[in-house]
Computed example of a mutant assay.
Amino acid sequence: MSTAGTADTATEIDVSALAAEQALDLLEGEGMDTDVAGLRLFVQQGGCAGLSYGMRFDGEPEEDDQIYEHHDLRIFVDPASMNYIGGSVLDFEGGLQGAGFHVENPNVVSECGCGESFRT
């Protein structure tokens, strides 16, 4: 649910229960207050397809962030990144290639072979 600005459900960022659980464990492990701190999801230039995802923990949101909360995890997204990742789902996957967070983005028209970068 968005708590800052107005976002319709088509552009909302969703989070799977497993991704939220993993991120909250990491946040708590860093000693961060999960009532205020959150996971920043952003897009940056780079990768073989042109854009790549970035994630980091932030102690609090920036003034112009969209803030989403799912399964007690707060997600912060800046307006520029929102243009590329609106409607995405953050998930956590494990497997032979290693465990990690994965963004399921409906805006992607192509991805690189390793899945680390994309184009909209």
Results as ranks from 00 to 15, higher is better:
residue 91 D to M: 09
residue 98 G to M: 08
residue 48 C to D: 09
residue 61 P to L: 02
residue 19 A to M: 13
residue 2 S to Q: 10
residue 101 F to N: 08
residue 51 L to V: 01
residue 7 A to M: 11
residue 52 S to G: 05
residue 50 G to D: 02
residue 63 E to W: 00
residue 79 P to V: 04
residue 77 V to M: 03
residue 11 T to H: 11
residue 63 E to R: 08
residue 69 E to P: 02
residue 110 S to F: 01
residue 73 L to N: 11
residue 33 D to P: 07
residue 35 D to R: 09
residue 94 G to H: 06
residue 19 A to V: 12
residue 9 T to G: 08
residue 115 G to E: 04
residue 54 G to A: 09
residue 79 P to Q: 07
residue 69 E to N: 13
residue 50 G to F: 00
residue 101 F to L: 04
residue 32 M to Q: 14
residue 110 S to M: 06
residue 89 V to H: 06
residue 71 H to V: 02
residue 37 A to K: 06
residue 89 V to C: 00
residue 111 E to W: 01
residue 50 G to C: 03
residue 70 H to Y: 08
residue 48 C to R: 07
residue 116 E to R: 13
residue 59 G to C: 02
residue 115 G to Q: 02
residue 53 Y to I: 15
residue 112 C to H: 00
residue 110 S to R: 11
residue 51 L to I: 00
residue 19 A to N: 13
residue 30 E to D: 10
residue 9 T to D: 14
residue 65 D to T: 06
residue 58 D to F: 01
residue 39 L to T: 01
residue 32 M to N: 10
residue 110 S to G: 06
residue 50 G to N: 04
residue 105 N to A: 09
residue 77 V to N: 06
residue 71 H to G: 00
residue 42 F to S: 15
residue 2 S to F: 00
residue 35 D to N: 13
residue 17 A to T: 12
residue 22 Q to M: 12
residue 52 S to N: 10
residue 97 Q to N: 13
residue 105 N to G: 06
residue 107 N to R: 14
residue 102 H to C: 12
residue 103 V to P: 01
residue 46 G to R: 03
residue 94 G to Y: 05
residue 26 L to D: 14
residue 100 G to S: 11
residue 76 F to C: 10
residue 73 L to M: 09
residue 84 Y to N: 11
residue 18 L to Q: 14
residue 12 E to D: 15
residue 74 R to T: 03
residue 55 M to C: 09
residue 6 T to Y: 14
residue 86 G to H: 05
residue 38 G to C: 08
residue 37 A to M: 07
residue 92 F to G: 01
residue 63 E to D: 15
residue 110 S to I: 04
residue 58 D to H: 03
residue 72 D to F: 11
residue 98 G to K: 07
residue 15 V to M: 11
residue 90 L to W: 03
residue 46 G to P: 08
residue 7 A to K: 03
residue 33 D to V: 12
residue 30 E to T: 03
residue 90 L to S: 02
residue 43 V to C: 03
residue 27 L to P: 05
residue 75 I to W: 04
residue 51 L to K: 12
residue 95 G to R: 06
residue 72 D to T: 14
residue 86 G to D: 05
residue 26 L to N: 07
residue 24 L to Q: 03
residue 47 G to S: 05
residue 7 A to N: 08
residue 82 M to V: 00
residue 41 L to I: 15
residue 67 I to S: 00
residue 2 S to K: 02
residue 96 L to P: 11
residue 100 G to E: 09
residue 95 G to M: 10
residue 31 G to L: 05
residue 71 H to Q: 01
residue 64 D to C: 01
residue 52 S to T: 12
residue 95 G to L: 08
residue 3 T to S: 15
residue 100 G to H: 09
residue 20 A to H: 08
residue 29 G to V: 02
residue 91 D to H: 10
residue 66 Q to A: 14
residue 94 G to D: 12
residue 90 L to P: 04
residue 24 L to T: 07
residue 6 T to R: 10
residue 94 G to F: 07
residue 32 M to P: 02
residue 6 T to W: 11
residue 23 A to F: 10
residue 89 V to I: 09
residue 87 G to L: 08
